[in-house]
């Protein structure tokens, strides 16, 4: 068990535990935001696992998570938007946490990887993670109760 796997285990417990708590309790907007953070954390853990097991193909799973996570959050924001209109907005801390956590995991991985195709892939995954998180948190903040929806 090397340092990457230890980091993955720590991130798994310290990250996904609170995510699970926030998804199961509290107002609906916080639950959706917690689910979004959960996809980000799982993607980072998968990257660490791929490095720790020394199996580069495992990175593909992380790429799929990075792509599917924001899409899922957009779907939730669209379908649950009328219900979570009155919930308190998320502060800027969630977005800052997402960017910081991504940088804290992806940059050491890039340094350990060295130049090559897999470095480009890692950077691409990091960019997708940050961009997708910004987009989905904007969609969450913009979800308002719709008046015209009931008549449709």
């Amino acid at each position: 068990m090397n340092a990457w796997l230890v980091a993955a285990a720590v991130l798994m417990v310290a990250g996904l535990g609170p995510v699970l708590w926030c998804v199961a309790t509290g107002p609906l907007r916080r639950r959706v935001a917690a689910q979004n953070t959960g996809t980000l954390l799982v993607c980072l853990v998968l990257l660490l696992l791929a490095r720790g097991y020394a199996r580069p193909p495992y990175t593909d799973v992380a790429l799929v998570v990075a792509l599917l996570g924001p899409v899922g959050t957009l779907v939730y924001a669209r379908l649950l938007g009328p219900e979570m209109g009155d919930d308190p907005q998320q502060g800027p801390l969630t977005k800052a946490f997402a960017v910081l956590a991504t940088a804290a995991v992806v940059l050491p991985l890039c340094v350990a990887e060295g130049p090559g195709r897999s470095l480009v892939k890692l950077l691409l995954i990091g960019a997708i993670l940050v961009g997708g998180n910004v987009i989905s948190s904007q969609a969450l903040a913009g979800a308002r109760p719709k008046e015209a929806d009931d008549h449709g």
């Binding site: 798994m12 996904l16 995510v19 699970l20 998804v23 199961a24 609906l28 639950r31 959706v32 917690a34 689910q35 959960g38 996809t39 799982v42 853990v45 998968l46 696992l49 799973v61 998570v65 899922g72 939730y76 649950l80 219900e83």
Partner: peptide, 16 residues
């Protein structure tokens, strides 16, 4: 509707 959110997190943990 809230269960669906927890189920998606369950899918993620199963992936792990």
């Amino acid at each position: 509707a809230r269960q669906a959110l927890v189920l998606s997190v369950l899918g993620l943990t199963l992936t792990l």
